[in-house]
Structure formats: structure tokens, C-alpha cells
Simulated scan of single mutants.
Amino acid sequence: MSFPFYIEVLGWRIHPHPVMESLGMFLGFRLYLKIRRKNRIQESHALFIFLGALAGAFIGAVGLAALEHLHQVQGDWQQAGALALVQGKTIVGGLLGGLMGVEGVKKLVGHRESTGDDMVLPLILGIVLGRVGCFLTGLSDETVGSKTSWWTGIDFGDGVPRHPTQLYEIAFLLLLAGGMLLLTSKKPWEGFLFQLFMLLYLLFRWGIEWLKPTDKLYGGSSAIQWACAAGILYYVALIMRKRKGEKRNAEQTIYIS
């Protein structure tokens, strides 16, 4: 198998990354429309929240990618100018940026109920398909891992066996999807699935970044790792606060009864 692995369609050779990325976004959105519970959000609010998520995800994805590849961006700035800032994207930045966009819009429109649980499986589907595109792209995608002697090592075209970190992530996400499906039928986890997904995914990404030959420009860690750490702390605090709130409400209900 050679990389990039171009997709042949009617005699055309199409690069795999934009194809799989677009397919992931399309199918993920279609899945969301199919499974979302309409009673959780008013139609008048849904569009604004979606636009907030889209804007936040774009800003977060390109902003964190620019920090992650700061030296490359600085080198490209002279030729491409501001376009150098939008040449890369990262899922971690997209997720965290999208979260901030959603929460900001929800405050503006006065929507207080949690809307994240319905997004978990669509996000997993979209990320998995996107990572397939990253894997098929090979070295030029800059998501492959460092040199390894593990049996999982793959030669992406430079004669060096490397960690296929994209495949590791796909395997993790498929296991996570199975766990999320099991928890959807558990009443105590309702309203916590998105927080749990984000916490586990950010923990995974923080760890897997050590297997990548990326620049560790910020205190021995990468920008993505610092963003993951911030997100992990946020979600640990959020889950603990929500759990305490539910426990307090349950105790008050028992006392009143």
C-alpha cells in the first residue's frame, strides 16, 4: 500500500483527506438529525446554537493548529500572510472551540438544558471517518507517529516503521462508541454522556500526542496537550459539580417527601 492512497472515481484520482473529512461531516450531521431529541431544544434556538458551534469549532481548530505548528506558520507567513493561519486544523481545537461557541450562544438565547448527549455518536462517527482520511494521506498529513519497533508499526513511505496513531484513535473511538451506547440506557448517566465523552477523548489525545514527533514548544508539551489538560480539568470539575447538584436535589426531594 502506498501513501497517499488516492481514491479512484470514474477515472479521477481524488485525495483521500478532503473526501473522508467531508463524508465524516455529512454523515455525522445526518446521524445527529436522525437521533436528536427535538424536545430538548426549540427549533428557533437550534439554528443559532448550530452556527455558534460551527464558528467556534473553526476558530478553535485553526487557532490551536497554528499554535501547535508555530514555527511552520512563522515560516509560511512571509509567503502566504494570514492564510498561513488557516492551513491546518486540529480536532481538539475544534471540539473545545465548538463547546465555547455553543455555550456562548446558549447564554444569549437563554437555553439552559444540556444539548450535548445527542452529539456524542455523530461526533465519534465524524472523527473516525476523518481519521481514515488522515491515515490514507500518510506522512504529509502530519498525524503519523514516531519511529517504533512495535508490531503495529507501518511504513508510510519513508522507509521508517511508525506508530499509526490514526488507527489507534479509530480503535479507541469505536470502543468508546460501544461504551456510550451501553450508557444511553442508564438513567443516572443522562445529561453526562457528552461530558464523559469529552473527558475520555481529551485524556486519550493527551496521551497519544507523546507518540507523535510534534514540536513540544511549551514547557516540554505541545499546544494540543496543554489544551487537552485544560479541557480535562474543566470536565472533571463540571462532572463533580453536576453530580453534587443532583445528589443535593435528591436529598431535598427525600426530605420534602
Rank of each mutant, 00 (worst) to 15 (best):
R241T: 15
L200E: 10
W226Q: 09
F197I: 01
G219R: 07
P188K: 05
D117M: 02
D117Q: 02
E209V: 00
W210T: 06
M180R: 11
L181E: 14
I170S: 09
S185G: 10
L175R: 07
A237Y: 14
G157N: 12
P188V: 04
L196H: 11
K247I: 13
D118R: 12
F156Q: 14
F192T: 01
V160N: 10
L139T: 13
W189F: 15
V120E: 01
V120N: 00
K247E: 15
L217N: 14
T214Y: 13
G138H: 05
L139G: 09
L200K: 11
R131M: 01
L203E: 13
R112F: 03
S114L: 12
K147M: 14
L202G: 03
L175D: 06
P164G: 05
I239Y: 07
L211K: 12
Y235L: 13
L217T: 05
R241E: 13
G116C: 02
G110N: 07
G126Q: 09
Y201G: 04
I208Q: 04
L123E: 12
D141F: 01
F135H: 13
P164K: 10
F172N: 05
L202I: 01
G231K: 03
L174I: 09
L203N: 13
G145T: 07
W189P: 02
W226E: 06
L173I: 03
P122D: 08
Y235M: 12
S146T: 15
G138S: 06
G220Y: 05
M240Q: 14
T184C: 09
I124Y: 02
L136G: 10
L181F: 04
L193M: 01
F172V: 12
G178P: 02
W226Y: 12
G220W: 06
S185C: 04
R162W: 07
L173Y: 02
L217S: 09
R248S: 11
K186A: 10
Y234R: 15
R205Y: 00
M198A: 12
A223M: 08
T115R: 03
G138E: 04
Y218W: 10
F172D: 11
V120W: 00
P122G: 07
L139S: 11
E251P: 02
V160H: 06
S222R: 07
L193G: 02
Y201L: 14
H111F: 06
L173N: 13
L233C: 09
I127S: 04
G126S: 12
G191V: 00
M198C: 08
Q166H: 05
G116L: 00
G116H: 06
E190A: 11
I170F: 05
F194G: 08
A250K: 15
V128T: 07
K212I: 05
D118Y: 10
E113S: 12
R162T: 01
G153N: 08
L181I: 13
G178R: 08
L203M: 13
A171C: 09
E190K: 15
G231H: 01
L167Y: 07
L200Q: 11
V128R: 07
D155Y: 10
G133Y: 01
L217P: 02
G219P: 09
L183T: 09
R248Q: 14
S222W: 09
A230S: 08
D155E: 06
V236M: 10
F135G: 11
P122L: 06
L123S: 15
A171Q: 08
